[in-house]
Every structure is written in structure tokens, then in C-alpha cells.
């Protein structure tokens, strides 16, 4: 993996997607840490509402904006609820300013309130935060730890949906304006004077979105990883996710196999029956992974004898993850 980053200096984003509980957050943290030693300003961003970055780094970063952890290493775990509330207030203020009024009309105010409770708001807010981060260009590299639901890549498909959505809106707006302008021309009134602020806002949004989407689907700039463990469910799940990736034109950069008991253990005499069975099962699935996903695998991370937490442990994970020897199973 390390050579991949050396060969692709344009990379700006790494995304970790997949089912929860397999070590996504750990891998994100590890990659971020490794990169922070090589690059300037690396951000590890969690969109996982389980807020596990705080646990991994043993520091409460939830909803605190960007927190500096180490030289060049920044961590951010957003509090979507807070962001939504702030956003609502921003909209209110904008209306007040635009129309020079002190109080919003009741129906408008209520609408803004209700929109905050709207089921997709959380996800959209998170998504907007990500797009905003990228657009701000404040960090040289972004590691996104995606939420587990829908493999975390729903957020990617949402980029596309929103993009199409805005595009359609824009089309309508533009068409409407065209008709308006033709009419003004016929009426011999100043044409082209129409400065459609709404359209301008839409274009702005679209710019931001397509920028994000372009980056996300550009495998020169974005690396997509899935974390997997040698278990049946995990393999099935990853296969399914791969299909989804394909549908979305996303090239998977790599699969990281996590929590693998070292096979050498089998040689040891003192190995208990229990662990032996477990390792044998894992090896069976490792072979399956090799067959089915072999070409995607880019790292194998062993099972640690304690839970990987804290800067030191993460550094250790990073070293292993980045410098994989390329073997899935012993021949």
C-alpha cells in the first residue's frame, strides 16, 4: 500500500467503506497516521454516528471540529445534529437579512423547523460537511471513515443523486429563464438583466457537488477501500458491495483483510484446540477470499492480542497495513 501512495502523488482522499465492526475506523486511523508522517495536513474524518474515532484515539473529539492529534494529523468527528441546528439558523438569518425583517413569517419558520426533523437531513448534513471540507482545500489529504449502513457508499450514490437533482433543477431554471428572456426581448425590455440568484445558488451547489463527485470517482485522486474479515458473512457482504461499486463507476482500490490469526500458530504445539479450529476456519475463508477477491487484496492485518487503541497501537497497525508482503495465504 505504501508504494501505491508513492506512485500516486495526486491522491487526495481515501475512503473506507463496508460493514461495521470489522475495523474500518482502525484502518482509517492507521492510514491517516501513516500519511501524516509523509504529507502535510492529513485529516481523519468520521461520518460514523457511532463516534468511534474518539474511542480509538482515546480522546473526545466528537462534535469539536478539527482536533490536532499529532503533527500534521487532524481528526474530526462531526455532530450532525449540531450542524443541522446551525444550518437552520443560518437560513433564518439569511432570510432576515435579505428581506430586512426581524421575524420570519410563521409558515416559513415552521417549515425550517420541520425540515430539521426530515429523515434524510443527517445524512445530507454529513455529506455537505465532507464536500465542504474538500472544497475548502484546507487539508492535503482526507481519510473518510464511512458509516456502516448501506456499506457507507450510499453517501457516494447520494452525490450522484444530488448532482442529477441539481442538474435537473438547473435545467428547469435555465429553461424558465430562457422563456422569460425571450418574452422580455419581445416586449422590448432590457433582456439579460435577469440575474437569477436562485440559479446562482444552484450553480454554486452543483459546482461543489460535481467537484466532490469528480474526485470521488477519479481513481487517481481517490482510493476506495473495503475492510473484510475472514468470515462467510463478511465475504458475501463484500461481494455485494463490489457490485454496487461497479454500478456507481467506482473502482475499488483495495480490500484489507483484518483480524487474521497468523497461520504459523498452527505449527505451535501449545496451541489449544479452540484456537486451532478458529484458525482453520479462517484459513478456509482466506482461501475463498483469495479466489474471489484476490486481485483486490492490498493488505492483511493480523489479529492483535489486544484491542488496537491509542496512538502507539495505531502506529503499529499502520506499519503492518502499509507494508504488506503480498501474501494472502502461505503457498
Amino acid at each position: 500500500m505504501s508504494s501505491f501512495y508513492e506512485d500516486n502523488p495526486d491522491l487526495k482522499i481515501a475512503v473506507f467503506a463496508g460493514k461495521g465492526g470489522l475495523g474500518k475506523t482502525t484502518c482509517s486511523a492507521a492510514l491517516a497516521m501513516w500519511l501524516s508522517k509523509k504529507k502535510q495536513r492529513v485529516l481523519c474524518f468520521s461520518t460514523d454516528p457511532q463516534a468511534s474515532l474518539s474511542d480509538i484515539f482515546e480522546k473526545d473529539v466528537f462534535g469539536k471540529g478539527s482536533v490536532t492529534l499529532d503533527k500534521n494529523l487532524y481528526v474530526m468527528e462531526i455532530d450532525a445534529d449540531k450542524r443541522i441546528a446551525a444550518f437552520q439558523e443560518e437560513v433564518r438569518q439569511k432570510i432576515r437579512d435579505m428581506y430586512g425583517i426581524d421575524e420570519l413569517p410563521k409558515e416559513i419558520d415552521e417549515y425550517i423547523n420541520a425540515a430539521g426533523a426530515e429523515p434524510a437531513m443527517h445524512e445530507s448534513a454529513t455529506y455537505d460537511a465532507m464536500a465542504g471540507l474538500l472544497a475548502s482545500d484546507e487539508y492535503n489529504f482526507h481519510v473518510f471513515d464511512m458509516p456502516p449502513f448501506g456499506h457507507g457508499i450510499r453517501i457516494v450514490s447520494m452525490a450522484r443523486i444530488l448532482d442529477v437533482w441539481v442538474e435537473k433543477m438547473e435545467e428547469t431554471r435555465k429553461k424558465a429563464q430562457e422563456y422569460g428572456e425571450s418574452a422580455w426581448k419581445m416586449q422590448q425590455r432590457t433582456s439579460g438583466a435577469g440575474q437569477d440568484e436562485m440559479l446562482a445558488e444552484l450553480l454554486e451547489i452543483r459546482k461543489k457537488l460535481s467537484f466532490f463527485q469528480d474526485i470521488l470517482t477519479d481513481n487517481k485522486r481517490t482510493a476506495f477501500y473495503m475492510v473484510i474479515t475472514p468470515e462467510k458473512m463478511s465475504i458475501l457482504d463484500t461481494e455485494r458491495a463490489l457490485k454496487m461499486f461497479e454500478q456507481m463507476d467506482i473502482t475499488l482500490t483495495g480490500v484489507i483483510i483484518n483480524q487474521v490469526y497468523p497461520k504459523e500458530l498452527l505449527q505451535r504445539k501449545d496451541l489449544g484446540d479452540f484456537l486451532r479450529k478458529r484458525i482453520e476456519m479462517q484459513q478456509k475463508y482466506m482461501n475463498e477470499i483469495k479466489d474471489k477477491l484476490g486481485k483486490h487484496v492490498c493488505a492483511v492485518i493480523p489479529m492483535f492480542d489486544r484491542e488496537p487503541k491509542g496512538l502507539e497501537m495505531i502506529q503499529q497497525v499502520a506499519d503492518i497495513m502499509m507494508n504488506w508482503d503480498g501474501k494472502i495465504t502461505e503457498e
Binding site: 500458530l265 501449545d270 496451541l271 489449544g272 484446540d273 489479529m303 492480542d305
Partner: peptide, 21 residues
């Protein structure tokens, strides 16, 4: 939960450490 006997029958660090943890 790692069963006690599984931990006891095994002397690799993995089981021991895991069990301790």
C-alpha cells in the same frame, strides 16, 4: 466470550492475552 477452558488449553499469547483482556 472466550471460554475458560479454551484459554487454558492454549498457551499462545493470543488466547492468553485475549483472555486477560
Amino acid at each position: 466470550v472466550i471460554p475458560q477452558e479454551a484459554a487454558e488449553s492454549d498457551s499462545t499469547d493470543y488466547m492468553k492475552n485475549s483472555y486477560l483482556q
